[in-house]
Simulated assay, not measured.
Amino acid sequence: MKTLHKLFGAALLFAFNPLFGFAQESSVNKQDQEIKHTNLQLSIVPYLGTNGANSGNYINDYSFNLFGGYSAGTNKLEIAGLFNINRFDAQHVQLAGLFNQVGGKINGAQLAGLANVTLDSIQGVQGAGIVNFTSGPVDGVQLAGITNFTSKSLKGFQGAGILNFAGQEVTGFQGAGIANFAGKDVKGTQAAGILNFTPKDVNGAQVAGILNFARKVNGTQIGLLNYADSVSGASIGLISIVKSGYHTLEIGVDEILPLNVAFRTGTRSFYNILSAGIRPEISNNIVWAFGYGVGTSPRLGKKTFLNLEVSSEQLSNGNVEALNLINRFYLGFDFKAAKNVGLYAGPSINFRVYDTSYSNHPDLFIVDGARIFSERSYAYEDLASQFWWGFRAGIRFF
């Protein structure tokens, strides 16, 4: 009991006598307030410690707070069981079990179990279990379990479980489980599980599980859906819309269907193909197909391009009732006959995979010259495969 009395008395002595054992050194004026400096602060909660009721006017070299601390700033190290609050700047290291709040700048490391809030810039590292927030620029690293936010620029790295937000340009890397947002240019990489977004330019890469959105991309977009005004590299995905890129509507014929329609979108370095085709039958259901593919179209001459394409289409007689997949590799030539008109033609090699347990597959060929040169059955899986040479030809509108 005597020991507890001594500890309680010492705490009171620290609280009401801030000069006890710690010489107060230089004093400066900050925002018309007298700010003092001390080597060490020990506190239980704000105002109950070695700096007493004036703790908010002291900049401490070292500050150790049992539950929480309140000071004008920190020069070297601050640790608290729950929280630290600094009115102005903090540098080197600030650690708290729950949160840190700094009214000025951070130069060093700011780490908290839940949240870090800095009302000016960061040069160093912010790490929090839930959220990091700063209203100034970040030059360094932000790591959070849920969200990182800066209303200014990011130069370095942002990593968050859900969302990264930078109000201005990003130079470096943003990686998030859900989404990355940059208010201005991105010079580096955005990688997200769902969405990467900037209304400005990307000089680097955007990689997303669903959607990438940017104005001008000098690099690569990889995602299920991609959108940009222009792309100087490749836009790779299921659907890529490049406003000033490569868009064609194609009408053509091949050895299977007399009428095919396809839409190409993306860039000539990499584009997506959505296709459909029909073969009207007099006495039966319409034979039709729908498919998807990707391709590239390097320039050969002033008006001539090469087409290298890989595609797959499901061929059905009426309803889609069984697997009947035509996989095609096409090598052809694209000649720009007029300003918005092109002609194309070339050979293809085809690989069909179909369900042998289904008896109503449509006939394959509409021309006599096509012949199957290889066929194989997989009886234990009710599947078979066939190879043959084919062709494609038609007209394209740009």
Rank of each mutant, 00 (worst) to 15 (best):
V93A: 06
F329M: 04
W388G: 07
N17M: 09
S230R: 15
G332M: 06
G204L: 12
L12V: 14
N75S: 11
I162S: 12
T267S: 08
Y47W: 03
A393P: 11
I395A: 11
W288F: 00
S151I: 09
P280T: 06
F391T: 03
D32H: 13
L95W: 04
N284Q: 15
Y344T: 00
R299C: 06
T198R: 07
E250H: 01
L114M: 10
E321Y: 12
V367P: 09
F290P: 01
L259M: 01
S135N: 00
L225F: 15
I236P: 11
L82P: 07
I85D: 13
R215M: 15
G245I: 06
S297D: 12
F149L: 07
I146N: 12
P347I: 02
N86Q: 09
I273L: 03
E281P: 03
K302M: 14
K336F: 03
L343A: 06
N39H: 12
S63Q: 08
L48E: 00
G204M: 11
P280D: 04
I85R: 14
Q94Y: 11
F149Q: 04
T147I: 14
G188L: 04
V170G: 02
P298L: 11
G140Y: 00
R371L: 06
D334W: 11
A96C: 06
G136N: 01
I146K: 09
A322N: 14
G177F: 05
A15K: 13
L300I: 04
A176H: 04
N307R: 10
V93P: 09
T296N: 05
D201T: 00
I349M: 05
S348M: 08
L257E: 01
Y58A: 07
V28C: 06
I366H: 02
L225R: 13
G161S: 05
F20R: 00
S377E: 08
N164P: 00
K76D: 15
F8V: 15
A109D: 09
N84K: 03
G175V: 09
V287I: 07
G177R: 08
S63C: 04
Y330M: 01
I282P: 14
F397E: 12
L315S: 01
S269Y: 09
F197W: 02
Q386C: 05
N51M: 02
Q190W: 11
S230V: 12
F351W: 05
A322F: 10
Q190D: 10
Y292W: 03
A144S: 15
L163W: 05
W388E: 07
S232N: 13
I194D: 14
A205N: 08
G233R: 10
L7C: 15
I146M: 14
G233A: 09
L7K: 15
K30Y: 09
S269R: 13
D382Y: 13
L98Y: 08
N54T: 11
E281K: 10
N107Y: 01
F333N: 07
E250F: 01
K187D: 00
N164L: 11
F165A: 15
K152L: 11
N60G: 08
Q101I: 14
A208V: 06
G183R: 03
N340S: 12
S377F: 04
I236D: 05
I194M: 14
G9K: 09
